[in-house]
């Protein structure tokens, strides 16, 4: 283990430079955040990820945000284990009917001020799964959404651009 740690100490970091915040995301977020909330949160945002019926593709790319290339934590974002600790809900999936109540309860358990980011084409409108008996179709049908990050699944850079836009508005 010592050898591995030492070797990596000599290498240059893998982490990519920060992307510019997404323009479309900034437009969507526009006037939604008030000043008081910005002051209270500073530069740190706690994210609770909620899978509301995704195919798990979005989860894989959200996971990738934590790897050395994207290193989400350098921006002050960190994933938390409970909605009670969260500022942001990152919701994926077309919201299955069977997950609707769990999503509503998770939202209710998240303290104010809070933001909801719907991830993926499914989170926007149900994506390929829209139209059936088993999906509500879009996170905004169930809880208020502040930002959509489209893609099937969005890649980590797109996720990062969207989240940075959120950070800029919150800050």
């Amino acid at each position: 283990m010592r050898k591995l740690l030492l070797q990596n100490g000599w290498r240059s970091p893998l982490t990519l430079p920060a992307p510019a915040p997404s323009e479309s995301a900034l437009t969507e977020l526009g006037a939604k955040v008030d000043r008081a909330a910005r002051r209270r949160l500073g530069r740190s945002l706690a994210i609770r990820e909620v899978d509301a019926g995704s195919c798990n593709g979005c989860e894989l790319e959200i996971h990738a945000l934590n790897n050395a290339f994207y290193d989400l934590e350098r921006f002050g974002f960190h994933f938390v284990a409970s909605p009670r600790h969260a500022d942001v809900l990152l919701v994926t999936g077309p919201v299955t009917v069977n997950m609707r109540e769990a999503l509503e309860r998770t939202y209710a358990a998240t303290p104010d001020p809070k933001w909801v980011v719907a991830v993926g084409d499914c989170g926007r409108n149900g994506g390929v799964f829209a139209g059936g008996y088993a999906c509500v179709g879009g996170v905004a049908e169930v809880i208020p959404v502040d930002l959509h990050i489209p893609g099937c699944p969005p890649n980590p850079m797109q996720l990062l651009e969207g989240l940075l836009a959120l950070l800029q508005v919150v800050r």
């Binding site: 899978d51 019926g53 299955t96 069977n98 997950m99 799964f129 059936g132 088993a134």
Partner: peptide, 23 residues
């Protein structure tokens, strides 16, 4: 289990091959 049931089999009924492959 069953929380992420999306009704995929029902969506596949009558789908074109292109859509079915995506699903």
């Amino acid at each position: 289990l069953g929380y992420v049931h999306k009704g995929i089999e029902s969506l596949l009924n009558g789908a074109s091959l292109e859509r079915a492959a995506r699903l």
